[in-house]
Design a binder for these strands. Structure first.
Lengths: 241, 241
DNA sequence: CTAGAATTAAAACGAACGTTTGAATTATAT
DNA sequence: ATATAATTCAAACGTTCGTTTTAATTCTAG
């Protein structure tokens, strides 16, 4: 066998494990997936998983990191580009939202293999019970989230920062659900799409984007306990403007 | 011991198991929680769980059913009441949303024990990997979801039903996240609330409600592939009106 | 070609899992 | 009080889990 075959078979083992793990973690969750079914699905020996990744936890992190790196790099690149084009002026909220959530959905649509699978895995990852997963996500997302938060703060200077953070959180939730579950959608509708699942994915981004921006720019809430001068209404106007 | 003690100790075993299971399922998920830690936490014998509930799956269903029954009954009651007061006219979207999502958060805030815990468990349940859990939720929610869908259809006659269903799905996601994770929120902010967690819960409902209604009534998306006559803009106006 | 490193393979490790068993205990009712 | 049912208990069932071990095999380099 030539040199290429050697390198390829080495890379194949790692990547076959990653691909199988990605699919199975998506379908059955971290706790619901055993190393044995991963290696069986990948067609490799059981010990190969621990040899290449060290542990099940590290395998999960490798699965997540492989895709998150390109997604978050693209997110930072697009935000840099948008801010450069804006020339010092604050970005429109819709542009920021599109850079963040649009990148996620577009990359998932582009990647032929594993893209949609990873998208659904990612949706579940935020609510995974295991501490180490959430801790990993937290560090993996730290810088890109900080950049986007600051961009939103500049974009909506009259909206309290706490409100922006909450609404960003709500947007994450809506997006996670949107991508995590065609299954979860069946809770809401039993009617089947005429155009098939391809239609769903193609129209999901504009649908979701409209919803997110509508939520982000909604009038500010009125809290029961707070005094309510007329200034409150002007804050509403700023947020909705 | 008197008769009350007997009945009480019987009920205590079942309810102590339910309470412990609720907490542990919330913290560690279904697969991450063993019958042994449940019964240890409840202070009962291991076999008592299988004696009273038959299996781990049935225990999970009992945990969910105990709270969902009162929440969904209240949801139907409030919708009946609102529709009776409206006298045949369609309800405002904000009223429907408040009956559905507001009930959830208010009940959770009222119940002294387990309310908030169950809320966070529920948030995770929609993305649980186990098939039987999602199947159970589907049947448990079937009628109340149908009622609310029809109410929204009547409330927004000019918005395509597919759009309403999708946006209801987005709203479920945003709400799930909002309640499932203070942890997930730490992904977005590292700043601590001055008023403590009580402040979070108290203001969560108005915050979330503003976001949801803003998203529900956002302008309709424009799909790339569809022809775009001026009628498209009027549909937007209807949705935003 | 050959020594050494990298990878794969089969087998086993102890621990934890959901569930069941059968006896001991407690409550209920005549 | 006594028989019957309901519940609790300690112990064990067989299975699966993540990981490790040790030997065989394959690749790499001098």
């Amino acid at each position: 066998m030539n040199k290429q075959t050697n390198e390829q078979s080495l890379k194949d083992t790692r990547e076959r494990i990653l691909d199988a793990a990605e699919q199975l973690f998506m379908k059955y969750g971290y706790d619901g997936t055993s190393m044995r079914v991963v290696t069986n699905e990948a067609g490799v020996n059981l010990a190969a998983a621990n040899y290449h990744f060290g542990s099940k936890e590290s395998l999960m992190q490798a699965v997540l990191r492989r895709r998150l790196e390109v997604i978050n790099q693209e997110r930072l690149r697009l935000l840099d580009e948008a801010e450069a084009n804006a020339g010092g002026k604050p970005l429109k909220p819709s542009v920021i939202i599109d850079c963040y959530f649009g990148t996620l959905l577009r990359i998932a649509a582009d990647q032929k293999a594993g893209g949609e699978t990873f998208l659904r895995l990612l949706g579940r990852t935020f609510t995974e019970p295991s501490d180490f997963i959430r801790a990993f996500m937290s560090t993996e997302y730290a810088d890109v989230l900080e950049r986007y938060k600051q961009a939103l703060f500049r974009s909506l200077p009259d909206v309290p920062k706490a409100e922006i953070v909450w609404r960003f959180h709500f947007m994450l939730g809506a997006t996670s659900y949107a991508i995590a579950g065609t299954d979860a959608l069946h809770l809401v509708t039993d009617w089947q799409f005429d155009e098939g699942s391809a239609e769903q994915d193609k129209n999901l981004l504009p649908r979701l984007m409209s919803f997110l921006i509508g939520g982000l720019r909604a009038p500010l809430p009125q809290f029961e306990n707070e005094a309510e001068p007329t200034a409150g209404k002007s804050a509403n106007k700023d947020a909705a403007a």
